[in-house]
Design a binder for these strands. Structure first.
Length: 737
RNA sequence: GGGCGAUUAGCUCAGUUGGUAGAGCAGCGCAUUUACACUGCGAAGGUCGGGGGUUCAAAUCCCUCAUCGCCCACCA
C-alpha cells in the first residue's frame, strides 16, 4: 500500500531526487517544452555577485521568480528563465586582494595578468557554489543558457555598446572633478557614494587680517587651494566687493589670489554667507570656477595627501594638514568661530573611505545630449526622433510601457532621473571589461584615439588600462544574455522580457541602467513589469550581516524544514516592496502544512484505491463537476487565485491556497466525506462520486500549489492514479487551456 | 531641505475596486485506539496611532497631528 505516506513527509529524501527528474526532463529549457507552449514568457535572473555564497535575500528572490515562471509554464507559455552571475568588479577584486593579503601577496607583485588569473579562479569557484545553492531552492532555470557578465559573449556586447555610444557622442572623455576613493584607488560614480551623517566642526575665519570677508568651512586644509570667495548676488553685506581680487601673500605658507564672485547657489544664511571656492576639490566649486573663468589649483593627491603647497603641508595627510591649518589660523588670530555641526560626509560604498573630490581624466556617459534614435519600438517615440538618454529612461516609465510594482517606486525613479548627472564609467581597477579604447602617443599633443571591437593592427597603440563600471555590463543583461549584438532567434523571441524581479536597493544602479541601455541600443524596453521585493530582515528587524553575526544560511533552513516550507515563509502575506521579517516559526508553520498535505494525500489514496486509474476528462467526471457545489466553490477560488497570480499578487494567492487546503478541504470536505464513506447504505455510485470529488480537488490543489511548493506537489503528483499523467511542472493550470 | 513608507489581536504581518475586522506563532478550554499530536473543535483577544471631514457605509478616500523607518540632495 502507500507505504511512503505512513511516515511524515521527508523533504531531504525528496527534493534532490525531484530536481534531478526536472533537469533530466529538459523542460527548464523552453526549446524542449511540449507543443502547446507557444507564446513566450521570459525573465532573466538578476545575476548574483561572484563574491561568495547566497543569503536569504537571494532565497527570497529565487522563490518569487521561480513561482512566477512555474505559473506561466503551467499556463502554457514558452518559459525562459535565464541564469547568470555578475563579476561585480570592485567587490570581487577587493575580496581577492584581501584573500591574497592573508598569504602576504600584493596584487602589484603578481602583475595584472597573474592577478586576474587568481580573480577568475575565485570567481569560477564562487559561481559553482552559487549554482548548486540556486538549484537547492528548486529554481527552474535554463542552465543551458548560463551567462556571466564577464564572459566572451558579454564582452563583445560591452565593446559593441561602448563603440556605438562613442560614435553617437554619448560617451566622452574629460578632465573634471570626480569622486575619488583613496582606499580603493579608483573613481566611483555618484550612485556608489553613501552619505554618513557625522559631527564636524565648522570653522569661521579670514584668509588674512586685511581680507574683508570671513568664510566658513569644515575643511580648512582645502582652503590653500582656493581661488575665489562666492557670495549670494543679493547679499548687501558683500556687494561692494564682488568683482575685486585680493592678493594674500601668506596663507599657511601659500600665496593666494582670491576673487570675490557672486553665485545664486550660495546661501546667505549659512555661516557667514560667504563660501571659499576650491575649484579642484569640489564639484560645486568647479562649476562656479568654470562660470567665472577662475583658475583651478590641485592640492590633494590620490592618496589624500597635500601637494603643490608649502613645505609645512606638502605630503601631509589631509587630516594632519587640517590641524596644521587650524593651528596656523589661531596663531595668527584669524580664527573667529568654531562650531559643532551635523554634516553629511560622502564615503565609498565598498571601502567606506571618505571620498576626495579631485580632477581626473575619465570616461563619462552623457545623459543629456540629444541624438537621433535609429530604431524605435518605444511607445511615444518615433524612429529617428531626437532624444537624450534621460528622455528615454523617463518616457517608458511615464507611459507605463514599463510598469513598476509597487506603484510608489515610480516616484522614486523619476526623482532620481531628474537629479541624474553624467555617469562616470571608468574605474582604475584591473578586474572587469577593459575599456575598448586604444591610444597612440598617449597624453601627448598628437594623441590619437581608436575606439572599437578589436585592437588596431600596428603595435604602437596601447589600450586604456582602466576597466568599466560593473553596471555598464549589467545594463546590457536582458539582451546580452540572448546573444546581442548578434541577431539571434532568442533575441527575437524573448526580448523584451516579461518580468524583472529585483530588490529596491538596485533600482537605480541596475533597473534604470537596463532601461537606458536597452532603449538606446535596440530601441525597445528591456522588460514589461518590474517587481520590487523588500529586504529580508531578522526577527529583531535588523538587516542580515556578517558584522552583526545574525547571518542565516538558507541551506541550514532547508536542511531542517525543506525548501518548500522556506519558500512559503518568504512568500505568504509579503506584499511587493515590503520588507520580510524572517522567522523560523513561520517556516515551521509551512513545514507543518507540507505534512498536512502529505496526510491528506494518504487519506485520499487509502480511500480511493478501488477506483484504479482515473481519466479526469471523462464524461462521468464532467457531469459530477457541473453539478457539485464543492467543486463550484473550488473553481471560484481557483479563478480568484489565477487572477492574483496574473497580477503578481503571490502574497495573496499563496495564503488563499493554504487556507482553502487546510480549513476548507481538510477540515470540512474531507471530514464530511468520512461519515459518508463509512455509511453502509451509501450506493456504489454515490461512493464513487465522493471519491472522485476528493481526488479531483486534490489534483487541483497540487496544481495551484505547485508554483509555491514545487517539490512536495511534484512528489505527491507522481503517486496519484491519473490517466495520461505528465510531470506536474508542465501540467495545465486549471481552467486554462 | 525634498520625497516615500509604516502605525490593525500579546508578537510578526495580510486585508486587491469603501460593504458585518483576518492569518501564522504564542496563550486558554475541551477532545483524541484519529489520514495527520507536524491533530481536531471551541472560546477569548482589536475604540484598525490621535483628531477632523466625505459617505447610507471608512482599516480602506480627503485633511491634520504624532511616533518610527527608508530614500534622495553639490549648504560650504
Amino acid at each position: 500500500m502507500h507505504e511512503k505516506f505512513l511516515k511524515p513527509y521527508n523533504p531531504q529524501e525528496t527534493e534532490e531526487k525531484i530536481y534531478k527528474i526536472w533537469e533530466d526532463s529538459g523542460y527548464f529549457n523552453p526549446d524542449n517544452l511540449p507543443e502547446r507552449h507557444q507564446k513566450p514568457y521570459s525573465m532573466v535572473l538578476p545575476p548574483p555577485n561572484v563574491t561568495g555564497i547566497l543569503h536569504l535575500g537571494h532565497a527570497d528572490m529565487l522563490a518569487i521568480e521561480d513561482t512566477a515562471i512555474r505559473f506561466q509554464r503551467m499556463q502554457g507559455k514558452k518559459t525562459l528563465w535565464l541564469p547568470g552571475t555578475d563579476h561585480a568588479a570592485i567587490a570581487t577584486q577587493t575580496k581577492v586582494e584581501k584573500l591574497l593579503a592573508k598569504e602576504g601577496i600584493k596584487k602589484h607583485d603578481l602583475g595584472r595578468e597573474k592577478f586576474l588569473d587568481k580573480v577568475n579562479e575565485f570567481a569560477m569557484d564562487s559561481q559553482k557554489t552559487i549554482i548548486s545553492q540556486t538549484k537547492r531552492m528548486g529554481s527552474s532555470l535554463d542552465w543551458s543558457r548560463l551567462a556571466f557578465t564577464l564572459d566572451e559573449q558579454r564582452n563583445l556586447a560591452v565593446k559593441t555598446a561602448f563603440q556605438r555610444m562613442y560614435e553617437d557622442g554619448l560617451i566622452y572623455r574629460k578632465n573634471k572633478v570626480i569622486n575619488w576613493d583613496p582606499k580603493g584607488q579608483t573613481v566611483i560614480s555618484d550612485d556608489e557614494i553613501v552619505y554618513e551623517e557625522r559631527k564636524t566642526t565648522l570653522y569661521t575665519f579670514k584668509y588674512s587680517k586685511d581680507f574683508p570677508i570671513a568664510i566658513s568651512t569644515t575643511r580648512p586644509e582645502t582652503k590653500v587651494g582656493d581661488t575665489a570667495v562666492a557670495v549670494n548676488p543679493n547679499d548687501k553685506r558683500y556687494k561692494e566687493f564682488v568683482g575685486k581680487t585680493f592678493e594674500i601673500e601668506d596663507f599657511c605658507g601659500v600665496k593666494l589670489s582670491i576673487k570675490i564672485i557672486s553665485d545664486r547657489e550660495v546661501d546667505p544664511e549659512f555661516g557667514t554667507g560667504a563660501l571659499g571656492v576650491t575649484p579642484a576639490h569640489s564639484k560645486v566649486d568647479e562649476k562656479m570656477a568654470l562660470d567665472n573663468n577662475l583658475p583651478s589649483k590641485e592640492i590633494i593627491s590620490e592618496y589624500a595627501c597635500m601637494k603643490n603647497v608649502g613645505e609645512n603641508l606638502n605630503g601631509k595627510k589631509v587630516k594632519e594638514a587640517r590641524e596644521i591649518v587650524i593651528g596656523w589660523l589661531k596663531e595668527n588670530n584669524l580664527m573667529m568661530e568654531e562650531k559643532e555641526i551635523e554634516h553629511n560626509v560622502s564615503t565609498a560604498e565598498r571601502t567606506s573611505a571618505v571620498i576626495e573630490p579631485l580632477p581626473k581624466l575619465q570616461w563619462f556617459i552623457d545623459v543629456n545630449k540629444k541624438f537621433k534614435l535609429p530604431h524605435s519600438k518605444i511607445e511615444g517615440i518615433k524612429t529617428s526622433e531626437e532624444v537624450c538618454l534621460k528622455d528615454l529612461m523617463k518616457k517608458v516609465v511615464e507611459t507605463k510601457e514599463v510598469k513598476i510594482l509597487p506603484d510608489r517606486f515610480n516616484k522614486t525613479y523619476f526623482n532620481w532621473i531628474d537629479k541624474l548627472q553624467d555617469w562616470c564609467i571608468s574605474r582604475q581597477i584591473w578586474y572587469g571589461h577593459q575599456i575598448p579604447v586604444w591610444y597612440k602617443n598617449k597624453d601627448k599633443s598628437d594623441e590619437e584615439v581608436h575606439v572599437g571591437i578589436e585592437a588596431p593592427q600596428e603595435n604602437s597603440w596601447e589600450q586604456d588600462p582602466d576597466t568599466l563600471d560593473t553596471w555598464f555590463s549589467s545594463g546590457l543583461w536582458t539582451f546580452s544574455t540572448l546573444g546581442w549584438p548578434n541577431k539571434t532567434n532568442d533575441l527575437e523571441l524573448y526580448h523584451p522580457t516579461d518580468l524583472l524581479e529585483t530588490a529596491h536597493d538596485i533600482l537605480f544602479f541596475w533597473v534604470a541602467r537596463m532601461i537606458l541601455m536597452s532603449t538606446y541600443l535596440i530601441g525597445e524596453i528591456p522588460f514589461k513589469t518590474v517587481y520590487i521585493h523588500g529586504l529580508v530582515r531578522d526577527d529583531k528587524n535588523r538587516k542580515f550581516s556578517k558584522s552583526l553575526g545574525n547571518a542565516i544560511d538558507p541551506l541550514d533552513i532547508i536542511e531542517k524544514y525543506g525548501t518548500d516550507a522556506l519558500r512559503m515563509s518568504l512568500l505568504v502575506a509579503v506584499a511587493p516592496g515590503q520588507d520580510v521579517k524572517f522567522s523560523e516559526d513561520k517556516v515551521k508553520a509551512y513545514k507543518k502544512f507540507s505534512n498536512k498535505l502529505w496526510n491528506i494525500t494518504r487519506f485520499i489514496l487509502d480511500n480511493t484505491q478501488a477506483l484504479g486509474e482515473i481519466d479526469f476528462d471523462s464524461e462521468e467526471l464532467r457531469k459530477i463537476r457541473s453539478s457539485n457545489l464543492q467543486i463550484e466553490e473550488l473553481e471560484k477560488i481557483i479563478s480568484d487565485i489565477t487572477s492574483d497570480m496574473e497580477n503578481y499578487r503571490f502574497y495573496l494567492a499563496s495564503e488563499k491556497i493554504y487556507h482553502y487546503t487546510w480549513h476548507e478541504f481538510a477540515d470540512k470536505i474531507i471530514e464530511e466525506s468520512k461519515s459518508k464513506l463509512s455509511d453502509p447504505n451509501l450506493s456504489d455510485g454515490q461512493r464513487k462520486e465522493t471519491q472522485l470529488i476528493l481526488l479531483y480537488i486534490l489534483q487541483n490543489i497540487l496544481k495551484i500549489l505547485h508554483p509555491f511548493m514545487p517539490f512536495i506537489t511534484e512528489e505527491i503528483w507522481s503517486e496519484l492514479p491519473i490517466k495520461n499523467k505528465k510531470l506536474l511542472m508542465i501540467e495545465n493550470w486549471p481552467n486554462s487551456n
